[in-house]
């Protein structure tokens, strides 16, 4: 039992526990809170995997921005809403069977795949993680990066236009 394994176990428990509580709660606000726990422990997984920059981005974007955005979405609609599901039990059972079948198939695939050890293990500690990501993003992936900035701009304008009140055009 190394420290890495203990940390992985606790983080996995928090991740899956948050997700399962998210599904089983009925109050919508409680769902978002338990989702925040899931997001933070996923950031812990990233740090454990040696991706510190992605972990910090996960905390900033997901547990900071998206959870708050979801809370705003709930507050601007029905903020004391309960979600009892669709109430259609036949559909729920069918979905449960489908998801369980998918889980079984992928579980079997993961357990039976021959995972090979990485080719070179020690070569990745040579540089700082954030510096490595920065060099790679601004040399090899510079066009996707610029396209992403255009996407964010379009999304900003589109979200403002759609959420604006209709009828007050002056």
């Amino acid at each position: 039992m190394s420290g890495e394994f203990i940390a992985f176990f606790i983080l996995s428990l928090l991740t899956i526990g948050g997700a399962v509580f998210m599904i089983s709660f009925t109050r919508v606000v409680h769902m978002v809170i338990s989702l925040g726990i899931t997001f933070i422990s996923i950031a812990g997984h990233f740090v454990l995997l040696g991706a510190e920059f992605v972990g910090v981005s996960q905390i900033l974007v997901y547990s900071g921005a998206i959870s708050i955005l979801m809370l705003f979405g709930i507050m601007l609609t029905k903020h004391d809403a309960n979600d009892e599901g669709t109430g259609n039990t036949w559909k729920n059972r069918f979905v449960l069977v489908f998801v369980a079948a998918l889980f079984g198939l992928l579980f079997w695939g993961i357990q039976n795949a021959p995972w090979q050890a990485p080719a070179q293990q020690a070569a990745e500690q040579s540089m700082n993680n954030a510096k490595e990501i920065g060099i790679e993003v601004f040399t090899k992936y510079v066009i996707p990066f610029e396209l992403l900035s255009v996407l964010l701009l379009v999304c900003l304008v589109g979200a403002i236009i759609m959420a604006k009140k209709e009828g007050d055009q002056q």
Binding site: V54, I66, M70, P118, N129, L148, C155, G158, M162
Partner: peptide
């Protein structure tokens, strides 16, 4: 091993944030 997967993760995060913003705007 490399940082390609981490860069893809950053791109996915950005697209997910954009999706949530537009989705909530439609919802409102």
């Amino acid at each position: 091993p490399g940082v390609t997967g981490q860069i893809f993760t950053l791109f996915t995060m950005t697209v997910a944030a954009a999706e949530v913003a537009v989705g909530l705007a439609i919802l409102i």
